[in-house]
Structure formats: structure tokens, C-alpha cells
Simulated assay, not measured.
Amino acid sequence: MRQKLIITLTTVRGSRQYTLSQLAGYLVGLFLLLSALSFFVSNLLLVQTRDHLHGLEQEKITLEEQFTEALGTQQLYLENLAELGSRYSEVFYERSQLEEEKIRLDADLSEIESILGVLTDLPAETPQTDRSALLRAASVQRLFLLHSIPNGLPIKGTRIGSGFGTRVHPITRARTPHNGLDFPAARGTPVYATADGIVEKAGFDQGSGFGNLIILQHNFGFKTYYAHLQNIEVTSSQYVHKGQLIGYSGNTGRSTGPHLHYEVRHLYTPLDPKPFVDWGLSNFESLFTSIEDVEWESLSAMYPLNQGGPQ
């Protein structure tokens, strides 16, 4: 009996049977096998494709991060390049300044003497080496005096609240001498020594109304007072140099507001500090004519090369 393949299909209308020969059965089986194999191969390829796409997506993210990092590195290089350009400009400017300074220092001695106002009456035939030595000595002496005698501002800013002389005291309302200058300033403003010296007092001064007070002793009998300080940065017996930070302004003692009270005294005699504040190398002679309470003649005898200075 020939082998046959019978296929039964059942529907709502009943069942039907189909008879296939053995060859047709093989073909149907082969078709089903190939369909199943194709299904599994397609799924495998789909999974591999999905994994490949996921890998490509990760590579895309990595490339984007590297691109962003490269942009940041490029920006950093540009910033460094700009900074180097700025530094080059600064160095070039400083070099130009130094060249100008060298030219100025190489100027004729007579011009320098004219600027300083010294040695102008020397004979024209005086050898240049002698003029140079005398000019150097005179300059050193002037700088020594400018470091020894109070000069310049003790605090940043040039506005003066109360000047030297008699005034109505803002607290007692009585007319009393005001022996210094008042510089209005916010609490904590730096205060500087106006000449080299030694600290005579650094602390709270009872009874004077000065509050926290610094007194500096300088050469030639001069003293400076710095009152109403908030903080003191020096101690008694300490040596200080001109321009050194010694304290910070405040409102201690009898004071109506934050400020620095500054005095210049000579042998305990209060002097008007304004000429001392204005005094410097450019107007060296001015102090010795504006302050008459100091015997400048004896100082002139000590420093004869300061022509135009103390007489």
C-alpha cells in the first residue's frame, strides 16, 4: 500500500481531509523546516543588528564626548594664547618703560641737578666725576631726611575733615586747640608710618580721648600721633620704617565718627601737619620755609650739601 499524507482541516462548517502523496508530504515538511529555520535565522540577525546599532549608538555618544572635550581643549588653548599675548604686551610695555628709564637715568647731570634743585651753583668747569659724587651724596642726604622727618599721607585719600588750629569740639562744644589733622575713613582703613622711627606707645590711651593710639619717635626730635585706631599692628619699642602698616583706622575714644587723627610734634610742640603731608622730593625746600618753629639752621650745618634745603 502506497504511503500517503493525510491533512485534516477543521472549521466551523466541519472537517475536511486532504490526501497528499509521499513526495508532496516531503515538500511540505521541507517547507515548514525552511520556514522555521528562516524564522530563527531572522531573529538571530535581528538580535545581532540590534546589538550592532546599540554599539554604534555608544560610539556616537563617545565621539560626541570626545568632540566636546576637543572643543573645550581648543577653547583652553585659545585662552592660553590670549593670556600669552597679554603677557607679551605687558613685558613689551615694561621693556619700553625700562628703556625710557635708562634714557632718563643717562640724562645729563646738570638736568638731574636742576630737577633736584641742588648743586646748581657749582662752577661749569667742575669735573663730571666730582659733580656725580656730590650729586649722589646730596641725593642720599635728601632721601635720608625724607625717611627721618615725617612726610606724606598716613592714610589713603587726601580729604581732610578738620584742620590744625582752634575749633569748636564736636562733643564738648567748647573752643579747644585741635593739634592735628582728621582724615575721615571707614573702619579698617590701613594706616602707615610717615617716617622711620621707633614705637613709643601702642595701645589704648586713658584720659586723652585718643582711644587706641600709636606714638612714633623719629629723628631730630619729631614725633607722630595716630589716634582713634580700630586695630594696632605694632608693639612698643618696635622699629618701623616709612610706609610700614602700623594699624587700621577706627572710632575709639572720644570720636563722632570713624577717622584718623594725625599729629606731628617737635620736642612736644604740636606742629601743623599739612606742610609735612605735602612735603616731598619735588618741593624739598618748602618745609624749611613754612615751618618756623624748628631751628633748621643747625640741621643745615649738619648737611651742607643740601643746597636749597635747610638754611
Score class of each variant (00 low, 15 high):
102 K>C: 04
34 L>W: 07
309 G>Y: 09
228 H>R: 07
78 L>M: 10
55 G>A: 14
234 V>F: 03
163 G>P: 03
46 L>F: 13
96 S>M: 11
262 Y>A: 02
39 F>Y: 11
11 T>L: 10
41 V>G: 04
75 Q>H: 12
229 L>P: 01
202 A>I: 14
129 T>E: 15
303 Y>N: 08
166 T>N: 07
83 E>Y: 05
150 P>W: 11
215 I>E: 03
207 G>D: 06
247 G>E: 07
288 F>T: 14
14 G>E: 07
203 G>Q: 08
262 Y>I: 01
22 Q>L: 10
182 D>V: 00
34 L>I: 12
149 I>R: 07
25 G>S: 13
208 S>N: 14
115 I>F: 11
178 H>S: 08
192 Y>S: 04
221 G>H: 05
266 H>W: 15
273 P>D: 11
87 R>D: 11
227 A>D: 05
61 I>T: 15
141 Q>M: 01
220 F>A: 03
158 T>Y: 09
296 W>Q: 09
234 V>S: 06
182 D>T: 01
26 Y>S: 14
108 D>W: 06
219 N>W: 15
274 K>E: 13
292 E>A: 13
42 S>V: 04
308 G>V: 02
108 D>V: 02
130 D>C: 00
229 L>D: 04
219 N>K: 10
185 A>T: 06
311 Q>C: 00
241 H>W: 00
167 R>C: 03
38 S>C: 13
154 P>T: 12
197 G>W: 06
150 P>Q: 10
204 F>M: 03
